[in-house]
Design a protein around this nucleic acid. Structure first.
Lengths: 343, 343
DNA sequence: AGTCGCCATGGAACCGCTTCCACGGCGCAG
DNA sequence: CTGCGCCGTGGAAGCGGTTCCATGGCGACT
């Protein structure tokens, strides 16, 4: 019953012109006389014609679509970055296709599917080191790629200095007078090759070393990037002899787990344990968490802008590294250690 | 320099067969002999052939893409719903295209662009009453639509009983002994036609009426769905004579604004003012907010499932209304009013 | 007045895939 | 041995646009 879809041919026939002319009108070609243009526009209006994005994309070889690869859409930090992306793309003529990644298989599959330029004109990868091989296939296929919170030579990236971030957190604790400082982070050998946590740990270690503090047995614990896992790890960390008086968690999510564990153990924060996180996600403000703030929203926004500029410019994006600043946000989960803390 | 993209014709030539045969192999048609199939598969592998999604979509008339319209991607509740959508679609062969809506113009533009079936095979609309006219054009064009947190006759929807939700919140406060209960919600004449807040207000009013309580002048305030706006409104609400001893905010975001205002005014929560929100977003747990929980994640998930089933089934989805349950979550922002509360 | 050239336009080819149709070859029944 | 039917296959048409090329008409210049 439903009237079949109006095509460019229908419009052409209605206006008494050729399909080519209608196309020219649609694309604002100057090669059309005013009179004809008016007639075509009227036909378009009359028939309620909507050009097919698909046909146009196929014909032009560009789909006006950006792929955004997001690992763990469940994580607040990923969503915050995505918000920046969406904000920047608003008003541009690009649509966003979301690729959620929860496993390496997932990831590889998406990257493989994207190897053709026809799924997306460009690719924005959030917080995920892309598999080298797939990345090169993409670049060879002429698909511009921008990395946010990940890097790879030859590809533009938006990053922060995670090592320095680890230093900032550790330095804060050292300056408060803590000498027994634990660390909770992601497994360094995780399946995705995430390195942020390891780098933050590195920064933390360097500060302790410089301060002449040693990292004791069991002061460093790894687990997946998850609140309850972190809680469990922290419980063990805090139960040991000579327990740390401060903990640096490599993300706010994990820091919240640490706080939970401390409360479970009947300790007060920061009275008995100081806690520093990383990211500054929205909840952290509510939880009063002291943390190293990284500009999540801005990173997404900037990544999108770089990608857009590359697309507008036509060429591949300049492989520039943009490094965004980190900032210590002191709230109420850190304080000097108790004088009477057991040594 | 870059080797031009491999097409089906290349594969056909390499394997010494016709393009049609390659297509049949790609689509698992039984009409191909084992020998030929093997030869084609080898060619595909050899040439690293990736079929063009675009060409396939154009030719088949289906793009294997779902459009998701999300108003205010900035809102935590919208993101939570989106999480459910993404989770459900994971593993299905559908991709998600995101349409962010920040203004009615935005909204209408997106809906207009989606009127052709070729942008998306189906449409999921979150928390947004679609403009009637555009909706019908969509349905006429055979694009299945599912509404989440919105309704419209003839279209399947996932909703909650907002009136009842308002009652639940108000009843809780009444049962605690409050008699002066304020309300802060969205502007009933907002530009998008959101009705949730108005319905919750309606439920709230009905409970107060049943309890024989009157809603005093200035006890009800409207503003945009925003924390700082709510904070300002609440400041006025709490500054008036005979100020309420409890406030029901039509969303958690607004409730958090109310709490902020109370603190600004030197009042304690729940000591001086009790606060109830609506949604139960993640932060609420941290803020200890008493709220009416609605299953945000589940709503997105169910919406996606309904849409998928409609698409698999081929036809239009049954215009079923799924109503998800609400639940009062009592935390620490509500308590009985002070005995000495000024009358 | 004739010729040249340019502008507006129609139409065909093409983007890369699916699908329909027609055809050749083979097996089987008459 | 001939004919019928079916299976596997090649090839063309079509999806709905864009773009290139050829053409016709007109104005301007000599």
């Amino acid at each position: 019953m439903q009237e079949s879809v109006v095509t460019i041919a229908d419009v052409a026939a209605y206006a008494g012109v050729g399909a080519g002319t209608v196309s020219r009108v649609l694309n604002d070609s100057p090669q059309v006389s005013e009179a004809t243009r008016a007639r075509v526009l009227e036909a378009i209006d009359e028939l309620q014609y909507q050009p097919s994005t698909l046909a146009r994309a196929l014909s032009r070889g560009r789909s006006h679509t950006l792929g955004v690869v997001v690992p763990f859409f469940t994580h607040a930090s990923a969503v915050e970055r995505l918000r920046g992306v969406v904000a920047e793309l608003d008003g541009s003529r690009y649509d966003v296709v979301l690729f959620n990644v929860e496993s390496p298989v997932h990831r590889d599959e998406h990257f493989r599917n994207l190897t053709r330029r026809d799924r997306a004109d460009g690719l924005l990868v959030l917080s995920l080191p892309p598999p080298e091989r797939e990345l090169h296939r993409l670049l060879d296929a002429g698909v511009p790629v921008v990395l946010v919170d990940a890097e790879c030579k030859g590809v533009p990236s938006i990053t922060t200095d995670d090592v320095e971030g680890g230093r900032i957190a550790a330095r804060h604790l050292v300056e408060l007078g803590h000498t027994r400082i634990g660390f909770i982070g992601d497994d360094p050998n995780n399946r995705f090759g995430f390195t942020a946590s390891a780098k933050r740990e590195h920064g933390y270690r360097s500060v302790l070393a410089d301060a002449g503090l040693r990292v004791r047995r069991g002061y460093i614990r790894y687990g997946s990037h998850d609140r309850t896992v972190a809680r469990r790890l922290a419980a063990k960390l805090l139960a040991q002899r000579d327990r740390p008086t401060a903990v640096f968690a490599s993300s706010d999510v994990q820091a919240l787990g640490v706080i939970g564990a401390a409360r479970d153990a009947g300790m007060t924060v920061p009275g008995d344990v100081s806690v520093v996180g990383f990211d500054d996600i929205e909840i952290s403000g509510y939880a009063g968490l002291t943390t190293v703030r990284q500009p999540l929203y801005e990173s997404g926004r900037l990544g999108a802008r770089v990608l857009l500029e590359a697309l507008e410019g036509g060429g591949s994006p300049m492989p520039v590294r943009h490094e965004l600043p980190l900032e210590l946000i002191v709230r109420s989960t850190t304080s000097p250690p108790r004088k009477d803390a057991n040594g």
